[in-house]
């Protein structure tokens, strides 16, 4: 075949259909927006019951995680995610699905080496780098505090 890797790469690019962004962008906006407004509705409802701001935030996350877990269990979540794309995986629902879906899938390998160890194959990096970033952020705060500043 008379073709350099580069030429072939260009041919592949030309022949490969791209994502239909006229569909994916509006859907990500709509579905992501809807999930966030559900969160907002929950937050308003909880704060009307005299909950503190912090508690409200926690319960909103927990409820959304719970809903995602149930939808993942019934095999519905990935059908919504197929349309939602980033609209479903960027909100906390995506994190929850990333934990619940391998847990569900790897039950055939048992609860120790299957469910619990595979639980973090996708979500693990989020926790690891989130924690590292938070520690970096904390270090900066600490230094500023020591210098007498306030952040």
């Amino acid at each position: 075949m008379n073709m350099s890797y580069k030429e072939y790469g260009q041919l592949v690019k030309k022949m490969s259909p791209g994502s239909p962004i006229y569909k994916t962008f509006p859907l990500a906006f709509l579905i992501g927006g809807t999930i966030c407004s559900v969160g907002e509705a929950l937050r308003l409802w909880l704060s009307s019951m005299n909950m503190s701001k912090e508690e409200c935030g926690i319960w909103v996350s927990v409820i959304l995680i719970f809903i995602t877990a149930v939808l993942t269990g019934f095999g519905v979540f990935h059908k919504i995610a197929k349309f939602g794309g980033a609209g479903t995986f960027v909100p906390i629902t995506g994190f929850a699905n990333a934990v619940v879906s391998p847990a569900l899938e790897f039950q055939t390998e048992g609860f120790i080496l299957g469910v619990s160890s595979k639980m973090f194959i996708i979500a693990g990096p989020v926790i690891v780098y989130g924690t590292i970033a938070a520690m970096a952020s904390g270090t900066i705060c600490y230094i500023i505090n020591c210098l007498g500043g306030n952040i």
């Binding site: 490969s16 259909p17 993942t72 197929k82 995506g94 699905n97 879906s101 569900l104 899938e105 996708i122």
Partner: peptide, 17 residues
């Protein structure tokens, strides 16, 4: 799918290719 890619219930979008 579970060996090569993602768990079945994981909500990802498959590209058209």
């Amino acid at each position: 799918e579970r060996q090569f890619r993602f768990p079945l219930e994981y909500g990802g979008q498959r590209p058209l290719t």
